[in-house]
Amino acid sequence: MNAVFQVNNLNKSFGGLTVANGISLSMEQGDRVALIGPNGAGKTTFINLVTGHMPPDSGSVALRGADITRLGPTARVRKGLVRSFQVTRLFSDMTPAEHVALAVLQRTGRSGRVFGNFGAMPDVMAEVSEGLKALGIDHIANHKVSEIAYGQQRLLEIALALALKPNVLLLDEPAAGVPQSDTSRIEEALAGLPDDLAVLMIDHDMDLVFRFARRVVVLAAGTIIFDGTPQDVAKDARVREAYLGNYANARSSV
């Protein structure tokens, strides 16, 4: 099986500050990878470099064997590299049905149509109800997003990403801000992601990470210091040092 997503030796620095130092990462279809690391480790920078919001100083990103390093963010999305946001970015005036419909229309090249309505397009409607149902939010399909609970908004965020039929999905803290009582719904949703999809999740919640990931990558100071199974990560001396060192620094600076 070939790598569906390959990051090769990514480097980025701002002046003297190196935020990405030779990051290499490869993922295959069906991978469930968690990216963790202490605050300021460069996780957000990594996402920005990979999604094309920030140009790397050197290195490359490839999707299904094709180099996408020179493509802009929207072109990468069209190639199948889709992300979700740490803080939900939804259209407060629109309904979940409209959100998913827009994603389907965009994916199928119909978002530029100046006539017609998705309500009259059976294939779009079918995909909308299917997509919302898969995440258990079909009962609120026609409520405005501003009127639905935050946990449901987070689920919609995932439904939206899935409606774009990605090859690689980057989830940026999918459970951030969700009340404890609702995280099980998010976990179920994550467990139900399509089998052939490669998923990279960034999160702080170790319970979630250990339940979700079959592989854990630890980033510290812009470098990958661990890449292995969840069972091994807790035993790794460098990882402990990175986290503990960070805590120690934080304490001493108070």
Partner: peptide, 10 residues
């Protein structure tokens, strides 16, 4: 109300 109009509202 078309897909294009929805995109603009987005």
């Amino acid at each position: 109300r078309s897909p294009f109009g929805m995109l603009c509202r987005g």
